[in-house]
Amino acid sequence: MGSTATPEHDGRGEKSDDGKGGRRRDRRKLGPLGRFALFNRQIVAELRKVVWPKKQELRQYTTVVIVFVIVMIGLVYGIDYGFSKLTFWIFG
C-alpha cells in the first residue's frame, strides 16, 4: 500500500502519527503534485476499509428495489390512466 500516512496506517500504531503533527509536516514538505498523490493514496486506503455489500445481500436488495419500483410505476401509471380518461371524459 505504500505510505499513505493515514491516521492509522497499520491499524496499530495509530497514535504515533494521527491527524495533525505528522501529516501536516508531511504536507508542507510535499509539492502540490505530491500532496495530490498522497491524498489519492489516502482515498484508496480508506476505500479498502469500506465494507462492501456481499453478493447475496446485493442480489436481495436489488430484487426488492426493482420489484418496488416496478410496482410503484405500475400503480402510478394505473392511477394516471384512470384520471386522464376521467378528465378527458369531463373536459374533452
Binding site: 492509522e8 495509530e14 480508506e46
Partner: peptide, 24 residues
C-alpha cells in the same frame, strides 16, 4: 474511537475519513 482522544481529535478524524470517502 480506539486510538483517538475524545473531542477535537475524534472530530478531526471523522472529518478526515469523511472527506476521503465522499470524494469517490
Amino acid at each position: 474511537i480506539p486510538g483517538y482522544r475524545a473531542g477535537r481529535q475524534t472530530a478531526e478524524y471523522l472529518q478526515y475519513v469523511l472527506t476521503r470517502i465522499t470524494w469517490p
